[in-house]
Simulated scan of single mutants.
Amino acid sequence: MATLEHTNFTVRDPQATAAWMKDVFDWKVRWEGPAIAGGYTVHVGSQHTYLALYAPNNPKITGESSYDIVGGLNHVGVLVEDIDAMEAKVRKAGFEPHNHADYEPGKRFYFDDDDGIEFEVIQYD
């Protein structure tokens, strides 16, 4: 069986994005430095998995919904042990949780970060 090791997506400020992810998710910066086409990347996550946060020299904001674009990033799912504690951390970081639901086999809520990336927080029962 294969395991997802990382995913890479574009943000305006990878260091700022990594900072809130460290505070909210308790992740660590694994590496950071210059990247393709004069950009900058920060790898943030755990020992075995991470998100690569890439910023090009001149980031462009589309304003389009990723759900309408083939190949778009729709959301990132993060599994937690205590969804209530995580929601408090998300709020403290300045993000507004929405779309709370209990479903088989657990609970979830969503929030959007400053780049408009949607995160789904999940706790299994």
Rank of each mutant, 00 (worst) to 15 (best):
106 G>I: 05
108 R>C: 10
118 E>T: 11
66 S>Q: 13
111 F>N: 01
64 E>M: 10
47 Q>I: 09
57 N>T: 15
72 G>R: 12
89 K>V: 01
115 D>C: 14
59 P>N: 08
108 R>P: 05
55 A>P: 07
65 S>C: 10
49 T>G: 04
61 I>A: 12
114 D>Y: 00
89 K>N: 09
73 L>F: 07
66 S>C: 05
74 N>I: 07
98 H>M: 07
113 D>V: 01
101 A>W: 04
108 R>L: 11
108 R>D: 03
62 T>P: 01
50 Y>K: 12
79 L>E: 09
102 D>I: 03
98 H>L: 06
89 K>M: 02
114 D>H: 09
98 H>A: 02
58 N>M: 12
80 V>H: 02
52 A>I: 00
114 D>A: 15
61 I>V: 15
93 A>W: 03
115 D>R: 12
118 E>A: 11
48 H>I: 10
51 L>P: 03
98 H>V: 09
53 L>P: 02
83 I>E: 06
75 H>D: 04
108 R>Y: 01
94 G>Q: 11
109 F>S: 04
65 S>E: 13
86 M>H: 03
99 N>D: 15
102 D>H: 03
114 D>T: 05
63 G>N: 07
112 D>S: 14
92 K>S: 05
78 V>I: 15
108 R>I: 00
81 E>V: 05
69 I>E: 13
110 Y>T: 10
96 E>C: 10
101 A>N: 07
53 L>R: 06
67 Y>E: 15
58 N>H: 15
81 E>L: 12
92 K>L: 11
114 D>G: 07
93 A>T: 12
94 G>W: 08
73 L>W: 08
80 V>K: 00
62 T>R: 04
111 F>K: 00
76 V>D: 01
109 F>M: 10
103 Y>K: 02
108 R>K: 01
107 K>D: 14
56 P>D: 01
80 V>Q: 05
51 L>S: 04
108 R>Q: 14
117 I>W: 06
62 T>H: 08
91 R>C: 05
83 I>L: 14
59 P>K: 14
53 L>I: 13
71 G>M: 11
95 F>Y: 06
89 K>E: 09
80 V>D: 00
97 P>F: 03
50 Y>S: 04
87 E>T: 08
54 Y>A: 11
60 K>Q: 13
104 E>T: 11
98 H>K: 10
100 H>L: 08
49 T>C: 09
98 H>D: 03
79 L>S: 03
79 L>F: 09
80 V>P: 04
67 Y>M: 10
98 H>C: 01
67 Y>F: 13
96 E>H: 04
108 R>W: 01
106 G>S: 03
70 V>P: 06
84 D>G: 05
76 V>N: 10
70 V>W: 04
58 N>E: 09
98 H>R: 14
115 D>S: 05
56 P>H: 09
95 F>N: 02
58 N>V: 13
71 G>D: 15
62 T>V: 07
69 I>Q: 13
96 E>T: 13
73 L>Q: 09
80 V>F: 00
109 F>G: 10
61 I>E: 14
51 L>G: 08
59 P>S: 10
109 F>T: 08
93 A>C: 08
49 T>P: 00
56 P>T: 12
49 T>H: 11
97 P>H: 05
87 E>C: 06
80 V>E: 00
109 F>D: 00
87 E>I: 00
58 N>D: 08
74 N>S: 07
